[in-house]
Design a protein around this nucleic acid. Structure first.
Length: 426
RNA sequence: GCGGUCGUGGCGAAGUGGUUAACGCACCGGAUUGUGGUUCCGGCAUACGUGGGUUCGAUUCCCACCGGUCGCCCCA
């Protein structure tokens, strides 16, 4: 027997309905925020992620699904969405379109080669949005608000929004310098990862779980102290907009994002819910001024976020929220006797043409078993067709909720069924 | 990549170094010759992850591998 590859999953009926529901919710929300869908390939030139996501990141160093195709090209299954969207933005010169900023959303699978655990798969699905072409702090707040809005509209309560500012290039460089100076004298007391980080990306030392109790950690220079006036003002405005929008947040000066392209605003939304797994981050995002340029476009600011659908559904589960998914079938045709069974095929066909959702037996089941099947499928109405009915050219329609039964002529079955179904809903 | 834990029918779950490997759910049929959700009776199922080893004999003991799961690192 061949199973799915490690870290991937089949979504079966019963589960797919939930996915469809949250996808529709997300699309509708993007519509109200005036974001438009973009669909990019699932694989890209490896170089895109090396340059876009950053050579020093874990994603690029050890998590990419990279392969060589028959033309000797190095390609990579996308590990995240932003690089592709920005590539597309540049390639198609969307920066030249009259309406700016360019507001895009995407839905699709991402791939990272990691050891799977709860909330972490090798193939996972992200919803994401990107707003390109505006350096207005209000759009940072808009993007954060959209994310919070989605979670809240689905009923999630145990949410924590964490934000930070990574500052502009100048601020980051000053901070980086200060970090190296600060940790250098103690670095031999830190874990091996941190010793490497000191050279490559000292900001990430702040993120280390192993060394979090080291005294030098507590006294480490905060990025917030190194923000220049402009960066400070920007961060203050983002927070102010969030305040006005009534969105609660906590500032975590150690929030560092795993991708190199972030600057200024960085944020994560986490779940507080009991019984949630070790991984609590539901979504993350931030500003990436400079990325468009890095990928060959004109100087263009950008901000976006991505959320994991798997984790979203986990969060709903943890908070015991049932999505309003209608599983009931409108009607089920139960037939008995050779002639009636044949006639049932015709009736089902006609009802479906009229847009009524019906089904029938295809297992050669006995009358009683057909009723059982109707019950299991949660049919609202059972349409009974036997020799008696056939002789009178009618069907007996039973309302499965009330138990009431009435005869209706086969000639007008579609219109009468429609009325019954609508009446049943009211 | 590292560590814990687990691997028995479609699902859940007992169990044993030795004749036919429990049970529950689900499914099918009957009681009820044309009316579901309850009950009772009966029936059904290619099941011990894979490969080695120990043994007269392994589903059981040992080893390796594979897979699931949870955690570490890191992230969505």
């Amino acid at each position: 027997m061949i199973n799915v590859p490690r870290g991937t999953q089949d979504l079966l009926p019963g589960e797919t309905e939930k996915w469809q529901y949250v996808e529709e919710k997300f699309k509708a929300l993007c519509h109200t925020y005036n974001y438009h869908e973009i669909r990019t390939p699932i694989f890209e030139h490896t170089e895109l992620f090396q340059r876009g996501v950053g050579d020093t990141t874990d994603i690029v160093q050890k998590e990419m699904y990279t392969f060589t195709d028959r033309g000797e090209r190095s390609l990579t299954l996308r590990p995240e969405g932003t690089a592709s969207v920005v590539r597309s933005f540049v390639q198609h010169k969307l920066f030249g379109h009259p309406t700016q900023p360019t507001k895009l959303f995407y839905i699709g699978p991402m791939f990272r080669y990691e050891r799977p655990q709860q909330g972490r798969m090798r193939q996972f699905v992200q919803f994401g949005v990107e707003a390109l072409g505006s350096a207005d702090p209000a759009i940072d707040a808009e993007v954060i608000g959209l994310a919070m809005n989605l979670y809240r509209s689905l009923g999630l309560k145990s949410l924590k929004l964490v934000i930070n500012s990574l500052g502009d290039v100048e601020s980051r460089n000053n901070h980086r310098h200060a970090l190296v100076e600060h940790f250098k004298p103690h670095i031999h007391e830190f874990c091996s990862d941190c010793q490497i980080r000191l050279e490559k990306n000292p900001l990430r030392i702040l993120d280390c779980k192993k060394d979090k109790d080291h005294p030098a950690m507590q006294t480490a220079p905060s990025i917030l102290d190194y923000l220049n006036d402009e960066s400070q003002a920007y961060f203050a405005q983002v927070k102010s907009y969030l305040d006005h929008m009534g969105i609660d947040y906590v500032v975590d000066k150690n929030l560092v994002r795993g991708l190199d392209y972030y600057n200024h605003t960085a944020f994560e939304i986490m779940s507080d819910a009991d019984g949630f797994g070790a991984i609590t981050t539901l979504s993350g995002g931030g500003r990436y001024n400079g990325l468009v340029e890095d990928l060959g476009g004109p100087e263009t600011p950008g901000i976006g976020f991505a959320l994991s659908v798997e984790r979203l559904l986990m969060a709903l589960d943890a908070e015991k929220i049932d999505l309003p998914i209608d599983q009931a079938l409108d009607g089920y045709v139960v037939a008995m006797g050779d002639n009636a069974v044949k006639k049932a095929v015709e009736i089902v066909y006609n009802l479906r043409q009229a847009g009524i959702q019906v089904d029938k037996d295809y297992q050669g089941k006995k009358f009683k078993a057909q009723f059982k099947a109707a019950d299991r499928l949660k049919a609202k109405f059972v349409i009974v067709l036997g020799e008696d009915e056939l002789a009178k050219q009618v069907v007996s329609v039973k309302d499965m909720t009330t138990g009431d039964q009435q005869e209706i002529p086969i000639a007008s079955i579609a219109t009468e069924m429609k009325q019954l179904i609508q009446g049943g809903k009211a």
